[in-house]
Design a protein around this nucleic acid. Structure first.
Lengths: 162, 162
DNA sequence: GCAGACGTTGCGCTTTGCGTACCGATACCC
DNA sequence: GGGTATCGGTACGCAAAGCGCAACGTCTGC
């Protein structure tokens, strides 16, 4: 179902200490060599590679190049709070299909969904918001235009045990 | 100022077509070899490597392992809308220093800052929100607890020219 | 026209990725 | 208990990739 090449969306997963250590190593440096990670963890390179392949295949981990879109000419990013009438999960599906949508979360609170959009300019942003509002089940939207991205981190401290 | 290893936060940057193509290639696959990218773009491997080093050094691009924290045992993620009294930029700085804070944006709208936090459990989340509210310049917070992460993408379509 | 700076290229040396075969542990069945 | 199928880790060899360096071309300023 999930398109590999699109972040890491796994339902849930059981990782042992070695998996966690590999994930943490790659969060710190996505291009670290398997041999280097293996040396640091005291296992064979093939083991790290096997684990990596499995985690990657399971959608738990994805190594990607990340940027600050605002610095690369996408001059109109925004977080859009969406209120839905039907089940948020269902409404989120067509939303997630839009190329300009980079992040979708089902949340509890004032909104039902938070949707991050990345657009070239304000005209483009307006167009995408109109597309969002036209989607079945979308009752209203609330837009927070990004002025400046201050922090973007993918390391979350020591991964919790299970 | 910026800690390398923490996403990509560049003020602004001028990228030519080759830079953009390299960034796009790495957004699609962060572990693609420089030689492979070079072949696809019709340049030498060393060129891709030089460009990559420069982009990386400039904080424009960062290759990292990304996960879905909710699937890895972080059971309490949230987006926190923060209203500030002073300059949002200034208030954002101590916020960005918290390990549990993974994302900080200055926005226009109902809030001044959007802050994403990644916590082990609800008790941990409560603790972090209290820390946020104790920060100088934070007037109020509004919390959206994550129920499910549906999409997480780092490809934003063709990068705009400059 | 010349000198300096800068980015690209080609080349060798070292290191890594990857396929494969081997080995030990665990579980299952008769 | 013995046999055996499965699974993950390890060792190894080869092709490929990363990396440092020297050489080359281009552009700029004097």
């Amino acid at each position: 179902m999930n398109d590999r090449r699109r972040g890491a969306i796994a339902g849930s997963a059981v990782l042992d200490d070695l998996d966690r250590a590999i994930v943490e190593a790659l969060q710190a440096d996505g291009r670290a060599s398997f041999r280097e990670i293996a040396r640091a963890l005291g296992v064979a390179e093939g083991t790290v590679r096997n684990r990596y392949d499995r985690l990657s295949e399971a959608g738990v981990l994805d190594v990607v190049g990340v940027t600050n879109p605002l610095a690369l000419g996408f001059d109109a990013m925004a977080m859009v709070g969406v209120t839905t009438s039907g089940r948020p999960q269902v409404v989120s599906e067509p939303i997630a299909e839009l190329t300009e949508v980079s992040y979708v979360v089902i949340v509890a609170g004032q909104f039902d969904l938070l949707v991050e959009v990345v657009c070239r300019d304000h005209a483009h942003l307006l167009e995408i918001i109109e597309q969002l509002r036209a989607i079945d089940g979308v009752v209203s939207t609330d837009t927070f235009v990004y002025l400046k991205l201050t922090k973007q981190s993918f390391e979350h401290g020591r991964l919790p045990g299970r």
